[in-house]
C-alpha cells in the first residue's frame, strides 16, 4: 500500500498489478487511457486521480473501488493542506 506523507488517500495498485500477473505500469496506463507517468504518480500517492480514472482502475482489476483506494480520515485539528 502506498501513502504519500501529506496524503490521506492510499492505494493498493502495486499489489493489484502484481496479483494480475505482474501487469506493467504501461499496460495499466494503456487500459485506463493515461500516460505511464500518471500511473506512477497515482501509485506513489503523489496524485489523486479523478473518480472516472479511479473507477476505470477498479474495473481493470475487477474489484471494488475501496479495494483499490483507501481513505484515512484526518484527526481533528490535523486536517491536511488541500
Amino acid at each position: 500500500m502506498t501513502q504519500a506523507s501529506s496524503n490521506r488517500v492510499t492505494n493498493s495498485i502495486r499489489t493489484l498489478r502484481f496479483m494480475k500477473g505482474e501487469m506493467t505500469q504501461q499496460e495499466l496506463a494503456d487500459r485506463i487511457d493515461v500516460t505511464r507517468q500518471t500511473v506512477v504518480a497515482i501509485e506513489q500517492g503523489r496524485y489523486a486521480p479523478s473518480l472516472e480514472i479511479a473507477f476505470r482502475i477498479a474495473e481493470v482489476f475487477q474489484c471494488k473501488m475501496e479495494e483499490v483506494f483507501q481513505y484515512q480520515p484526518a484527526e481533528k485539528g490535523k486536517r491536511g493542506k488541500k
Partner: peptide
C-alpha cells in the same frame, strides 16, 4: 507524443 490526460491538464 502521448495523448494529454487529466494530470497533464492539472
Amino acid at each position: 507524443p502521448e495523448k494529454e490526460d487529466e494530470r497533464d491538464k492539472l
